[in-house]
Simulated scan of single mutants.
Amino acid sequence: MYEITLIILTALILGVTIAPLYPSNHWLARIWEFPRVQISAISLCLVAASFFISKTYIQLTLIIINALASLYQLIWIFPYTKLYPIQVAKSTTDSNNIPIKIMTSNVLMPNHTATKLLALVNQHQPDVLITLETDNWWETALRPVHIDYPYRVNQALDNLYGMHLYSKYPLAEIEVLNLIEEDIPSIHCYLQLTDKIKIKCHFLHPAPPSPTENATSTPRDKELLLIAKKVATKTEPTIVTGDLNDVAWSPTTRAFRQISGLKDPRIGRGMFNTFHADYFFLRWPLDHIFHSEHFELNKIQRLPSINSDHFPLLSELVYITNK
């Protein structure tokens, strides 16, 4: 029975490792790009368990399959460990440079404990706050921040894709667009740091591939790659952030970075898993920030729970004036 259990578990690990390689955008295939850390950990446990099998040929087969599966998964996630070289330099002390602090928070629309988010905003004082899944209730609940954030874009929706932007800096050329799907908005604007310095910002929240959302990842992938291609044609300072409903190590996010030329400050620093806040053993990085070469990083951190299924993400970039 012990051997049969290990064989079945190894077959399952092999199946979910191979599934994302299948040329399909169906959620049943793409969903296995998310838990690569968990799959690798289970594979290593199965390697250890295989040493207690008496039949040598079965033992060797199970060890090889699980070791290769674990190695394959680790290759994908390795850039998001501290063993990998950092992609974005640590900011230097230069009084001419301009820090910009951005907080991204998927609040979970049915969650009505706005006080926790308000407390974090008060504590960290981000220059830009982007909230996702915010409806009319949340729009009202977040009114206390208006005094500190005079520049705002409100897009309240009750379909889990509402979005609100709060900024201490002036906003210019604001566009709220449904890039791919109706009623799934994104916000695009310039953040005016000074009279001469402005940053192009894209705030995104595409729908995920899942049995309750989209059967395939095609709409999400199209939105991300559409923005990537748009950014690739520009040389201006740029920031893309939001809940992308994709993990940092997926082929789509890799393609996004390669096409856009934007950098990921998490590379070489850690995963900063923001989802799922309630289950420590099922977490991966869904909330992202990417930026052009005009920035260095002062700090990036996952903030405490606000009773959402996502943790807020706080990123402090520094605009380098001599770029």
Rank of each mutant, 00 (worst) to 15 (best):
I4A: 07
I8L: 12
L14V: 12
A49P: 00
I53V: 14
I53C: 02
I53P: 03
L60G: 03
Q73H: 15
N96W: 07
N122G: 00
P126R: 09
P126I: 00
D127K: 05
V128M: 03
E133Q: 10
W138D: 00
A141L: 10
A141K: 13
L142Y: 04
V145D: 09
D148T: 07
Y149I: 03
L160M: 00
K168Q: 07
Y169T: 03
A172G: 06
E173V: 12
L177A: 15
E182G: 10
E182S: 14
D183P: 01
P185V: 01
I187Y: 05
C189W: 00
D195V: 09
D195S: 03
I197T: 15
I197K: 12
K198F: 08
I199Q: 09
K200V: 05
H205G: 12
A215G: 11
K222G: 06
L224I: 05
I227V: 15
T235Q: 13
G242D: 06
N245Q: 00
D246H: 02
T253Q: 08
Q258D: 00
Q258V: 07
G261I: 08
L262H: 05
P265W: 02
R269C: 08
G270A: 07
M271V: 03
T274M: 02
H276W: 07
D278Y: 14
Y279N: 15
F280E: 11
F280R: 12
W284P: 11
L286A: 09
R302I: 02
L303N: 12
P304K: 02
P304S: 13
N307L: 13
F311E: 08
F311C: 04
P312T: 04
P312S: 10
L313I: 11
L314W: 05
E316P: 01
K323Q: 15
